[in-house]
Design a protein around this nucleic acid. Structure first.
Lengths: 341, 341
DNA sequence: GTGTTATCGTAAAGCGCTTGACGTAATAAA
DNA sequence: TTTATTACGTCAAGCGCTTTACGATAACAC
């Protein structure tokens, strides 16, 4: 969008001065009242008068002027790689809930597997955000980021030392998943990784690998599929690797996300591989479609809403105290469906 | 999030004054240079000097102060009911692309079928947005909205008189769909509506109804299913209505969205209804999962990215000229897959 | 009565930037 | 040479709000 001057005239805005005039007070008093800082500074009579004037005129504090004066805006920034995966919808929903109506959520979408450029980061900081939430941060990004605003990382296990981080209890979920597979008699399991190399996927892979070993199962291989959004890439990866997997006796395939698992289900169908008889398939996330696909997908549910809420709470904790905040792990629970039954 | 005072100290910000000092000019000149308003006001020598100083200090114009002085921010607001449907991810992606890096996107999520309250609208206007994009606006919302910023409605056919609106060419897509169904010999078609009563769904229903009649087909009924997000509601609606549909000889079921169609596919499977042999099923949107479900879903693709792009372009057209802008209809194309084959 | 404390109000100094008005010098036109 | 024009720069007045510092008044104790 070009940054041309507007041809549309702006309407007159109702200012604190008008409210003050109507209420018969000063603008300072109006400010104190609308910001609830009246303790021992404004009489109840004046509070009432200002409130009445505010209602009558429909006055709303100008966010821009207020931000300039206070030195910080009421905007919270979410930096996320991509929104096409419905998982992020849940995260955003949780964030919004916890933010309440006082704060606004601004989105910085960077494209899958990427982080904002240094220039982008500067533009974001120029907003004087009340906080910054980051999904899948990379090192360069964290380095570029000036200490301009409270920062919280989402689903970035291993980065706890760099910033406050809110994580899922992946170990718990993956242990449940592997127990379930072991119980069903699987001894050789494959893993289909995501190509986006973020901490969460790194950890999922490692936990599956070590967990399998701990149960005396064989962990077979780790091809990567490109996309969290488009299952087709996973389908391709499956088509490519299935011969080798079958050869080595793989009977269960753990996928890095539900979306990847969808691609596998499709490719398996095309190939005549029966799920779960020939191959058990599992995912992560528990997207809505996972109950619909055929067979329905066994998956580790990751509570996206809770992630969003937790992130905002961590932000708020940071604002209240400068001491390092530790966020509790969020439950990751196994959901068993037809794809492993 | 409570609006408590921050405990975190803010770092000193680099101001235009520092740049001016380093460059040996006034802040006015700095402002002119960074905003590219140098024509006939600043010598090339000074432009260079300022640029160098900007680079050296890493100066970025403070968005808040700039917005206050200009009377408008660089924030574009998207008001959307829900983000869990991946369709919106595509819309947002299109918006971001077209906005470029100068403008920021702020999200106001309101919950399915709802619009922001008057108080919310005021808070949004207080941001002095450069523009407002609205998915699924309702009358009350449009009434509350002060003429504070350029407004564009997305996928709201019939509201063209109230504001600039960007729409899909639903008639084209639905005609293609009905032609396809007629060709396959279907003479009685059912319709599964969405419970959210927005213009786009109203129009889909009417076009299917009138289009069926025009082709000598019988349009059978119109139960509603609650959710665009969760296919389960559609599954329930199908379970409830299938006996009546079968009775009246319905052989094809058009669903208001892909998500609804997923629910139908699942319920049909549970019921032993074969798709497409006993019943053809179609949707709208062409979500990624539609190629994955079994059978793959015939659907009318609605280009979400184009919708986002178009909306931003309409916004920008409004900013440039006060005359009413008309946006072209965006193609809606039929995608034939197994669910009708 | 005086001194003390608590309560309440407001003036005014910013926050950092944009922009119209104005001044000056250099160049062109008369 | 005088006058008009053009090119550059800067001043300073905001934009609308927050908050500190200060004064005024009232209440209270002694």
């Amino acid at each position: 969008m070009p940054r041309t001057s507007a041809a549309v005239p702006r309407p007159r805005r109702i200012t604190a001065a008008q409210v003050a005039e109507l209420a018969g007070t000063s603008v300072a008093t109006v400010s104190l009242v609308v910001n609830d800082k009246t303790a021992g500074r404004v009489s109840t009579a004046n509070i009432e008068r200002v409130r009445a004037a505010v209602d009558e005129l429909g006055y709303v504090v100008d966010h821009t002027a207020s931000s300039l004066a206070r030195g910080t805006s009421n905007i919270v920034i979410l930096i996320a790689p991509d929104l096409s995966n419905p998982f992020y919808g849940r995260v955003i929903s949780g964030i919004k809930d916890e933010l309440g109506s006082e704060f606004q959520l601004l989105l910085s979408i960077t494209g899958e597997g990427r982080n904002p450029s240094a220039a982008d980061v500067h533009r974001l900081i120029a907003l004087r955000p009340a906080g910054i939430l980051v999904e899948a941060p990379d090192d360069a990004f964290l380095r570029d980021l000036p200490a301009g605003a409270p920062l919280v990382l989402l689903d970035a296990p291993g980065r706890e030392t760099q910033a406050v981080t809110v994580n899922f209890d992946l170990a718990h979920g993956i242990n449940a998943l592997l127990d379930h597979l072991a119980e069903r008699g699987h001894t050789r399991i494959g893993y289909l990784d995501s190509r986006t190399r973020t901490e969460t996927f790194e950890l999922r892979r490692i936990l599956v690998e070590t967990g399998a070993a701990a149960r005396g199962m064989e962990y077979v291989s780790r091809p990567e599929a490109a996309s969290l959004i488009d299952p087709d890439a996973a389908a391709e990866a499956f088509l490519e690797h299935w011969p080798a997997w079958r050869e080595s006796g793989v009977t269960a395939l753990v996928c890095a996300t539900d979306s990847h698992a969808y691609g596998v289900l499709k490719a398996a169908r095309d190939l005549g591989v029966r799920v779960p008889e020939d191959l058990a398939v599992t995912g992560f996330d528990n997207l809505p479609a996972s109950a619909i696909v055929s067979p329905a997908l066994t998956t580790v549910e990751l509570p996206g809403e809770a992630l969003g809420r937790g992130a905002v709470r961590a932000l708020q904790a940071q604002r209240l105290s400068p001491e390092p905040v530790t966020a509790p792990l969020l439950g990751a629970t196994l959901i068993v469906r037809g794809s492993t039954a």
